[in-house]
């Protein structure tokens, strides 16, 4: 397990614990009391550290390479997943995956950005940065879900929509814009969950839902802290400051009325206890589906559009 700088106290305590256990084994000593004491210390250190994380620290956790990605959730939260491919136009975008699956006994459409874990996968998945065909594939699947009356679940985890020659040629802006418009009038429940990084239009392009949720240690904003720092401070050095200024954490986003809720992560982040994370997300999704299924499609659309229409901060004199 890789530790972040701010996890140093935990790392040291865990090292001590290991040593005590080794000593006990080697010398056949009963050090249960010391072990217990250390374990309590570790737990307390984790609680202290994780209840006071800065924006930048959460950005780091959201990018941890051991964090569950979309396909991990697909495997552990859902059953009977059938992956579907292609936008029926240009190609299959591997940075955006999707297909039909079951959660409990409910059929749903699951769509999400997909990152890679090693160099080869990262290239194949384009670091989770979708091209226009990815957004168009997502919309195609959403329209299918609407046709067959299935709730839609999107999992957001992207450092941004792909910037490049081909992306521009094929209309990255138009592809995202179209999704925003079409998602706002989908006749089935739409639940969006930021599971890692929620960067800008690339995230929003699959982010218009009746419930927009963020896992506890994720971020969602108009720009990454690094890019914000380079534009406003003209240097990459101010990413910590930028992360604070952007108010990009789940807690801030909820406070500002820009998301509907925060889903707690296991202590130490989703990667510290993936099984627990899968169960929490599954319970949360099932509850939301049950709630939203009670509403007529007219009510769903009216409420969804009403919610986004209210977002903003201005005064009228």
């Amino acid at each position: 397990m890789a530790y972040f700088d701010f996890e140093k106290p935990i790392e040291e305590l865990e090292l001590q614990l290991e040593n005590i256990k080794k000593t006990a084994d080697k010398n056949k000593l009963d050090l249960t009391a010391s072990v217990f004491e250390l374990q309590e210390k570790i737990e307390k250190a984790k609680q202290d550290i994780y209840s006071n994380l800065t924006g930048w620290q959460r950005v780091q956790i959201s990018r941890h390479t051991d964090r569950p990605y979309t396909l991990d959730y697909v495997e552990h939260v859902f059953t009977d997943f059938i992956e579907m491919h292609g936008d029926r136009n240009v190609k299959d975008d591997k940075a955006m995956i999707g297909g039909i699956a079951r959660i409990g006994d409910q059929s749903v459409m699951v769509i999400g950005h997909q990152k890679g874990r090693n160099t080869k996968q990262r290239q194949m998945r384009n670091f989770g940065m979708a091209n226009p065909e990815g957004y168009r594939k997502a919309l195609r699947l959403m329209k299918l879900a609407e046709k067959f009356n299935m709730p839609i679940i999107t999992l957001i985890d992207t450092p941004g929509a792909s910037p490049g020659l081909e992306a521009e040629e094929r209309g990255q802006g138009e592809a995202i814009a179209k999704n925003l418009l079409e998602m706002s009038v989908l006749k089935v429940p739409v639940i969006c969950v930021v599971i890692g990084e929620g960067a800008s239009g690339g995230a929003l392009g699959i982010g218009i839902g009746d419930r927009v949720m963020m896992l506890e240690n994720t971020w969602y904003s108009v720009i990454s802290p690094e890019s914000c720092s380079s534009i406003l401070w003209r240097s990459w050095e101010h990413k910590e400051k930028a992360a604070e200024a952007l108010k990009l954490t789940a807690k801030d986003m909820l406070k500002n009325g820009l998301i509907d809720g925060v889903i707690p992560e296991p202590l130490g982040g989703a990667h510290n206890n993936p099984e627990k994370m899968y169960q929490t997300l599954k319970d949360s999704l099932q509850n939301m589906i049950a709630d939203l299924s009670k509403l007529s499609c007219e009510k769903l659309i009216e409420t969804r559009i009403g919610k986004f229409s209210k977002m903003g901060s201005y005064t009228e004199l």
Partner: peptide, 17 residues
């Protein structure tokens, strides 16, 4: 950028309208 996610959500708001 100075309105961060508020700014981002204007994309959603205008498209929904």
């Amino acid at each position: 950028m100075m309105e961060a996610a508020f700014s981002l959500m204007q994309m959603a708001k205008t498209s929904a309208k």
